[in-house]
Structures are given as C-alpha cells and as structure tokens.
C-alpha cells in the first residue's frame, strides 16, 4: 500500500485551471518534492490530499484511504502544515503544542521522541507567544505541531518560504531525519536548491506536472552543454546574447548567465567581442537549468 497515490486529478476555480491531469505516487519512506513557482497549483494539490478541497475529476488516496469517502480516517492520520503560518499567534509555544496534541487525542510526552530534536531548539522560548517568534522558529513550531500526533504521512506546503538561509538548511536536515524514521513526506518549495535534497521531485508549472524523476536523473537528462558567461556590463550582455541567433536560452544564474546554444560557442564569443571583462566557461547543468528548459518548452507548446 503506497502512502500517497494521485490519479488524474483535475481542479478548476472558475475559468482558472488550477490542476490538470495530475498523477504521481509517493513511496514508503520517501521525501517527495513538488517544485514550481507561485501559482503552479501546489497548495491546491495539498488541500485536496488533506481532504480540504474536492477535486473536479480523478481520485487520490492517502495511506489507502480515499480522500473523499474516508476523509475522516485521513484527518486523524496526516500531519499538515499549511503554506501560511496557521497557529494561534496569541498562544505561547507550549500552549500551541499542547493544544494540538490534545485535539489529536494524544499528549506531548507520548510522542516526545519524534519532536524532541526540533522542540529543543525552540524550547528556550516556550513562554513566548507564537506571533512574536522569528520566521524560522515559527516554522519549527508549526512542524512540531504537525508531528505531535505521530502522523503516518506528512504534508508540508512551502515550509521554508520566508525563512532565512540558515534556518532553511536546518529545516531540511530535520526533514532528512524524519525521513529516516520512515515517515513519507510530501513537501513543496519554490526554491531549486532544495529540490536536490528530495528523493524524487515533480516539476510543476501552471497546474501541470512537467516531469517526475530523481534530481540526479533530471540533471543527467539535461543533454546540452551549458556555458556560464559574465562581463562588466551584465545588462548589455544578456541583451546581446538573447539577440544572437545561435542562442537557445539565456537566464541569469547568480553572478553568471547560463546559456545554451545550437551554434559553436566560438561564434558567440565573436559576437560579444565588444564586451569588456568577458568570461565564458563551460558549466555543469543544475536542476534549475532543467526546470527553465522545461518551462520554456511548455510555454512554447501553448
């Protein structure tokens, strides 16, 4: 029995097609990532799986229970962390945690081993109202609250959005440890650097899944060589590269531009010789390059 099975889910809000023909499965003990920009439909998918929304078409099951018929069973088995911070701001850390433990018919002590590592980080502030915590601490508390009843499946909707880089790193380390404890996790994120930390990812855009694979395979599949380019005047550089007829794609990528070509790179160098401080070196493809290419292909197909 697979923890999460999604088959041909469709969902529209009026004229807006939020999800189209979504299908995937999450394996036992897998950390599965939904990667995509804002508006890709990630939160809608989470809400359907958390039994909060009904899909227009298609079926989905969590832990073998249907999300429509057996929604009551699912609600007692999943841990759900919505995209927006949704705890009681006027209650302290301790009160929030105890409250959520109780409404799930358990106590903090009973499952303390599961949340211990995370809770210890915020414990010094346990008398502080949740609304007065920093972004990273809020997310740690929310994770504690989602975990306190020892869920069989964990849904985390953009848990690291609005969190500083250090806390983000810590948060993902926690997810790795939870995964080791055998809890299947479905997590969404708009950050590409987090995608490589998942076992498998689904790249989403405009309500559709463009590709599902392991991050390594997605990168390996990226067939073309990538060139990293930079010059003193980056603005003119990006304009000139995009104007060059041999360019397939050109995106800003940190302090470099990532460029793919269907003509030899020497011709590009020739085209750009007026630029000062021009550097063009071969680069390794990242998951972001793959995503950008898929996005471009999808946009061109429409």
């Amino acid at each position: 029995m697979l923890p999460i099975v999604v088959e041909n889910i469709h969902k529209s809000f009026g004229d807006v097609k939020a999800l189209q023909n979504i299908s995937f499965t999450v394996e036992e003990g897998e950390l599965f990532g939904l990667i995509g920009p804002d508006g890709a439909g990630k939160s809608t998918l989470f809400r359907i799986l958390a039994t909060l929304l009904l899909a227009d078409k298609g079926t989905a099951s969590v832990n073998g229970s249907d999300v429509v018929k057996d929604y009551r069973t699912i609600r007692s088995q999943v841990g759900y962390m919505p995209g927006r911070f949704s705890l009681y701001q006027d209650l302290t850390i301790e009160e929030n945690l105890n409250f959520f433990a109780t409404i799930f018919n358990t106590t903090v002590e009973e499952n303390y081993d599961l949340i211990k590592e995370i809770y210890e980080q915020i414990e010094p502030f346990k008398k502080r109202p949740a609304g007065k915590l920093s972004g990273g601490m809020k997310q740690k508390l929310a994770l504690c609250c989602a975990l306190v009843h020892k869920p069989k499946v964990l849904f985390l909707d953009e848990p690291t959005t609005g969190v500083d880089p250090v806390s983000r790193k810590e948060f993902w380390e926690m997810l790795q440890r939870l995964k080791e404890k055998g809890i299947p996790i479905l997590v969404s994120t708009p950050y590409m650097d987090e995608a490589i930390l998942c076992d498998r990812v689904a790249l989403m855009q405009k309500g559709e899944i463009m590709m599902i694979n392991t991050p390594a395979a997605i990168v390996a599949d990226f067939g073309k060589p990538i060139w990293a380019a930079r010059a003193d005047n980056m603005y003119h550089l990006i304009r000139d590269i995009r104007a060059f007829e041999g360019t397939d794609s050109c995106y800003a990528f940190g302090e470099y531009l990532h460029v793919t070509l269907h003509q030899p790179v020497e011709e590009l160098k020739d085209h750009l010789k007026a630029h000062k401080g021009l550097i063009i070196t071969p680069a390794k493809a990242g998951i972001e390059d793959a995503f950008m290419q898929l996005m471009q292909e999808q946009n061109e197909a429409v």
């Binding site: 919505p82 705890l87 018919n105």
Partner: peptide
C-alpha cells in the same frame, strides 16, 4: 481568516 480553521478541520475534531 488566520488559517487556523484549516488545521482544525484537518484534525479528528
């Protein structure tokens, strides 16, 4: 409005 209803609904309550 605060989104806590979402969590309350996804609970056995």
């Amino acid at each position: 409005e605060l989104g806590t209803m979402e969590i309350l609904l996804v609970s056995p309550l």
